[in-house]
C-alpha cells in the first residue's frame, strides 16, 4: 500500500461534527470542573482535620466537666458549619452546568467564589475565636486545669506574658492556615476568576 495514495482516503474521511452551540457550551465547561475540585478538596480537608484530631496525642490538660462540654460544643458547632459549607460546595458543583446560559453561569461562578472566600474567612475566624473563648473559659472557670504556680498568680507580668504567648502562637497558626488555604484553594479561585472574566467579556 502506497502511503501517498492514502492522502485521498484521508481527505475524504467524514468526521462527526459538533454544532456551533455545542462548541460554545464547551467554553463554559472548565468552571464546572473547578467547582468539582473545590467540592472534593473541601471534603478531603474535612476528613483530614478529623483524622488529624483523632491522631493527636491526648491533651495533658485535665479539664473539668463544664470545660469539656464547652470545648466539645465549639467543635460540634464548627463541624456543623463546615458540613454546611461542603453541602453548599456540592450544590454549586451541581449547579454549574454546560447547558446554562452565560448569565446564569456567571451568577453561579460568582456565588461559588464568594462561598469559598467565606469558607476561608470562617475557618480563620473560627480558629481565633475558639482560641480566645477556650482560653477565657479555662482561665475563668477551670484555672486548676493549667496548674499556675501560686507565687505568680497575682503577677501582672506573668499574665501579660501568657497573653502575649497565646497571641503569638495563634498568629503563627493563623498565618500558616492562611497560606495553607491560599495554596489549597487559591489556584482554583484564580482559575474561576479568569473564567469569570472571560465569560463576562463574552457577555
Amino acid at each position: 500500500m502506497d502511503i501517498n495514495q492514502l492522502k485521498n482516503v484521508w481527505k475524504e474521511q467524514k468526521t462527526t461534527s459538533f454544532s456551533r452551540e455545542q462548541i460554545l457550551a464547551m467554553l463554559k465547561r472548565k468552571s464546572s470542573s473547578v467547582a468539582k475540585w473545590i467540592f472534593y478538596i473541601s471534603l478531603g480537608e474535612f476528613i483530614f482535620w478529623i483524622l488529624f484530631s483523632l491522631l493527636l496525642p491526648e491533651s495533658s490538660l485535665k479539664l473539668n466537666n463544664s470545660s469539656e462540654f464547652f470545648v466539645t460544643a465549639i467543635s460540634v458547632v464548627n463541624y456543623i458549619v463546615i458540613i454546611g459549607f461542603i453541602i453548599l460546595f456540592f450544590i454549586n458543583f451541581k449547579k454549574i452546568k454546560v447547558e446554562q446560559n452565560v448569565s446564569e453561569l456567571l451568577a453561579n461562578i460568582f456565588r461559588l467564589r464568594k462561598t469559598v472566600r467565606y469558607y476561608i474567612i470562617y475557618n480563620l475566624a473560627m480558629f481565633v475565636l475558639s482560641v480566645i473563648l477556650s482560653t477565657w473559659w479555662i482561665l475563668i472557670y477551670d484555672s486548676e486545669a493549667i496548674n499556675i504556680p501560686s507565687n505568680v498568680k497575682n503577677n501582672t507580668a506573668f499574665w501579660l506574658g501568657l497573653v502575649f504567648a497565646v497571641f503569638t502562637v495563634t498568629l503563627i497558626i493563623v498565618i500558616s492556615l492562611y497560606f495553607f488555604y491560599r495554596l489549597l484553594y487559591g489556584f482554583l479561585l484564580r482559575r474561576l476568576k479568569k473564567n469569570y472574566e472571560e465569560l463576562k467579556q463574552l457577555q
Binding site: 468526521t15 462548541i23 463574552l202
Partner: peptide, 20 residues
C-alpha cells in the same frame, strides 16, 4: 459579531482538523 461568535464560527468551519 462578538469575539465569541467569530471564534465559534472558525472552530465550526475547521472542526474536522480537531476531530482528526
Amino acid at each position: 459579531s462578538t469575539r465569541q461568535d467569530i471564534f465559534a464560527n472558525l472552530v465550526d468551519e475547521n472542526q474536522g482538523i480537531i476531530h482528526k
